[in-house]
């Protein structure tokens, strides 16, 4: 089997291919010892070749992977495989987000990553959901149900927290506040998309945050592009790494 393993800052994801087709996949928390965790996951698969990506790719390469590629390349490969017509990828994970623009042949021509802070990442949404007492699924659904039209101003998690609390104290319905938070995240992502990939075209939205229906709706509205969400959006990087193993095997 060919394995792609994505060692992210918060979770490790693995995709196994056999005969060039998706066979199995799984995800686990990174924990305190990502190397041990990854090895435990790999034990279950008789692998002929392992390619690592993500934050821990070099660690993996030192210990068990035969090659390491960046998240950028891995996402480009994975997204293109799932949606051959896509020209742009937006990946929003736990602690970062990135935009990747591809040329017709699927090569990376440009990419952007967010700066040092949590703004516009999964972590930001989690913090805001917790303040409002939602779990993540309820949070997206609540935001989707609201008609509220103004975004919160702050994208810094610390300031946004106080902004959300004061909205709560003003008696605004939680669903409206949820919507305001989503609007601000969507605005930020749309701006990033516009900087890195103004050309438009079909957009693949990957990463755990792509499961959020409200963000998908808002991004469709704001970019005017068709937004394509893979069936397992968090696995796109691992899939890309596995496909790279296939290419290099």
């Amino acid at each position: 089997m060919l394995i792609g393993i994505d060692l992210g800052s918060r979770a490790i994801k693995l995709v196994a291919l056999a005969d060039g087709a998706w066979r199995q996949s799984e995800a686990q928390e990174s924990g305190f010892d990502p190397r041990r965790q990854a090895l435990a996951m790999l034990e279950k698969y008789p692998a002929s070749r392992v390619v690592a990506t993500g934050y821990g790719r070099h660690l993996a390469q030192r210990h068990f992977a035969s090659e390491a590629i960046t998240e950028i390349k891995a996402h480009a490969l994975g997204a293109r495989h799932l949606f051959p017509e896509c020209s742009t990828i937006l990946d929003v994970g736990g602690q970062d987000c990135k935009v990747i623009r591809l040329d017709r042949a699927g090569r990376v021509v440009n990419f952007q990553m967010n700066d040092k802070c949590a703004a516009g990442t999964g972590r930001f949404l989690e913090i805001m959901a917790a303040i409002l007492g939602y779990d993540l699924e309820e949070f997206g659904a609540a935001a989707l149900s609201s008609r509220h039209e103004t975004a919160i101003n702050s994208m810094c998690a610390v300031f946004a927290e106080s902004e959300v609390i004061s909205m709560k104290n003003l008696g605004l319905p939680p669903a409206d506040i949820a919507r305001a938070v989503h609007l601000s995240v969507a605005n930020r992502l749309a701006a990033m998309l516009n900087r890195a990939a103004p050309a438009g075209g079909p957009l693949v939205f990957s990463g755990g945050v792509a499961k959020n229906p409200c963000l998908v709706a808002l991004l469709t509205q704001q970019t005017g592009s068709q937004v394509l969400v893979p069936p397992a959006p968090a696995m796109v990087g691992a899939l890309g790494a596995a496909l790279h193993a296939l290419g290099g095997a």
Binding site: Y55, I69, T70, E71, I72, K73, D96, R107, V108, V109, N110, F111, M113, D115, K116
Partner: peptide
Amino acid sequence: YLAIESDYSPEDTGQLQTRIEAFLEQIRE
């Protein structure tokens, strides 16, 4: 082309490393 904005702190080294490696992948391709 890759644009980087940085200061002297080591904080962003991990992210810069990823961006730089992706840039080199892009050049090689």
